[in-house]
Amino acid sequence: MEVITPTNFRKDMFNVLKDIAASNKELEVTLNSQIGANDGVVMISKREWQAIQEELYLQRTGTLDYVFNLMENESEDDFEDA
């Protein structure tokens, strides 16, 4: 994951945001904390965010486990020739 300082992010904000949206890459903007730890922010594209939210929903509702179970236990008899 690429890491950038807030100062460098501000200098080229539009191009950085455009690149994140187009490439689906993550970007960390570092923020120094009073205790020395890095309290950064991670930026992701809206498409990536929606995909994560969908996967969390499928996991929360049990649908993901159901689909994985079907995939693990599939057999040739499960499919019909068209």
Rank of each mutant, 00 (worst) to 15 (best):
Thr5Asp: 04
Thr5Tyr: 02
Thr5Lys: 11
Thr5Pro: 02
Thr5Ile: 08
Thr5Met: 04
Thr5Glu: 07
Pro6Gln: 11
Pro6Ser: 08
Pro6Val: 09
Pro6Ala: 07
Thr7Val: 14
Asn8Cys: 09
Asn8Tyr: 10
Asn8Lys: 14
Phe9Asn: 00
Phe9Leu: 09
Phe9Lys: 01
Phe9Met: 08
Arg10Asp: 14
Arg10Gly: 04
Lys11Val: 05
Asp12Arg: 14
Asp12Met: 09
Asp12Glu: 13
Met13Ser: 14
Met13Trp: 09
Met13Glu: 15
Met13Pro: 02
Met13Gly: 02
Met13Phe: 07
Met13Lys: 15
Phe14Asn: 07
Phe14Met: 10
Phe14Cys: 00
Phe14Glu: 13
Asn15Phe: 08
Val16Arg: 07
Val16Cys: 08
Val16Glu: 06
Leu17Tyr: 07
Leu17Arg: 11
Leu17Asn: 12
Lys18His: 11
Lys18Asn: 13
Lys18Glu: 14
Asp19Val: 06
Asp19Phe: 07
Asp19Arg: 15
Ile20Trp: 03
Ile20Lys: 05
Ile20Arg: 03
Ala21Gln: 15
Ala21Cys: 04
Ala21Asp: 13
Ala22Gln: 13
Ala22Thr: 09
Ala22Gly: 08
Ser23Phe: 09
Ser23Gln: 06
Asn24Arg: 10
Asn24Lys: 09
Glu26Cys: 01
Glu26Pro: 01
Glu28Pro: 00
Glu28Ser: 07
Glu28Cys: 03
Glu28His: 05
Val29Thr: 04
Val29Glu: 02
Val29Trp: 03
Val29Phe: 02
Thr30Asn: 04
Leu31Ile: 14
Leu31Gln: 10
Asn32Tyr: 10
Ser33Asp: 09
Ser33Thr: 13
Ser33Asn: 09
Ser33Gly: 12
Gln34Pro: 08
Gln34Cys: 01
Ile35His: 09
Ile35Asn: 15
Ile35Thr: 15
Gly36Thr: 04
Gly36Asp: 02
Ala37Asn: 09
Ala37Val: 15
Ala37Trp: 12
Asn38His: 05
Asn38Leu: 03
Asn38Arg: 10
Asn38Val: 06
Asn38Gln: 06
Asp39Tyr: 10
Asp39Ile: 12
Asp39Cys: 10
Asp39Asn: 12
Asp39Thr: 11
Asp39Val: 11
Gly40Val: 01
Val41Thr: 12
Val41Asp: 00
Val41Trp: 05
Val41Ser: 04
Val41Ile: 15
Val41His: 06
Val42Asp: 00
Val42Lys: 13
Val42Tyr: 10
Val42Leu: 07
Val42His: 05
Met43Arg: 03
Met43Asp: 01
Ile44Val: 15
Ile44Met: 13
Ile44Cys: 06
Ile44Trp: 06
Ser45Ile: 02
Ser45Glu: 02
Ser45Phe: 05
Ser45Ala: 11
Ser45Arg: 01
Ser45Cys: 05
Lys46Cys: 05
Lys46Tyr: 13
Arg47Met: 07
Arg47Phe: 06
Glu48His: 10
Trp49Tyr: 14
Trp49His: 14
Trp49Phe: 14
Trp49Gln: 13
Gln50Glu: 15
Gln50Met: 13
Gln50Ala: 11
Gln50Thr: 08
Ala51Leu: 14
Ala51Asp: 14
Ile52Val: 09
Ile52Gly: 03
Ile52Trp: 10
Ile52Ala: 07
